[in-house]
Design a protein around this nucleic acid. Structure first.
Lengths: 139, 139
DNA sequence: ACATATTGCGCAATAA
DNA sequence: CTTATTGCGCAATATG
């Protein structure tokens, strides 16, 4: 992740120049340095690389493998997105369930508290239950 | 969405053949079939369309606009994904909040119910509150 | 050095 | 006609 070095080219990027189908290929601007006598002691450090050999068999294989990897990666990405969306739905349901439960519990609590209050009033007024209470008649 | 007509080509799709920067363009492989001897009464409609004029000014403009639209669309898509993820986090928090509230309410209910039970027992045993109950002495 | 995984990008088809 | 979305390949880069 994070690619700080995006040249921000609006057009004419590294892009283009694919030309797969035809036999006619790119001019092959290899600087003709390697594979000569003496060969290679130098690490390929500061040289341009116009040589990618689009015709190379190995290149095509790499491309194909990468294309496969790309597909795979994108598939995963989409799957993950869908899973996340699914998670949202599940959580929303769970949420409603919990809210309903809270509502129920609150109602119950309210009822019980009212009973307590009523009882307390009866006691405070020093009144025998006027036949409206829950059932403490003893007369 | 949905493109049922994907020829499943592993390579050499419509792709490639971009070649933006250079003046040299594609060989323009026009099949040169019509107007030859032999006729072919085929209507000019069902033929390939190698004519897209990559060099056309209008083509480049369309491409550029589309590229812009693509960027925009992908940006939105990513934003949406991030929003969805954010929503998941929010819902999870909300969920914990609700669970905690349920726990609290349940506890309160439990306490009140215990009080009621105790009271009920006192009444059932027909016992004058032994100076330990909440206070219903009246004699 | 080497392989796969991610990502930004442009293209073309096609959906809206 | 236009823009929006989508599948795809490429190349750079990240990751292991």
């Amino acid at each position: 992740m994070s690619r700080p070095s995006q040249p921000k080219l609006t057009a004419a990027d590294h892009n283009g120049v694919s030309v797969i189908q035809s036999q006619a290929h790119v001019p092959q601007l290899v600087p003709a340095n390697s594979s000569s006598a003496g060969g290679k002691a130098l690490p390929p450090s500061k040289m341009k690389k116009p040589s990618v050999d689009k015709d190379s068999d190995e290149y095509r294989q790499r491309r194909e493998r990468n294309n496969l990897a790309v597909k795979k990666s994108r598939m995963r990405s989409k799957q993950k997105a869908m899973d996340t969306q699914q998670r949202v739905n599940e959580l929303k349901e769970e949420n409603e369930r919990l809210e309903a439960k809270i509502k129920l519990l609150s109602k119950e609590l309210s009822v019980l508290k009212d009973l307590f209050l009523e009882h307390a009033h009866n006691l405070a007024d020093n009144v025998q239950p006027p036949a409206g209470a829950e059932g403490s008649r003893q007369f």
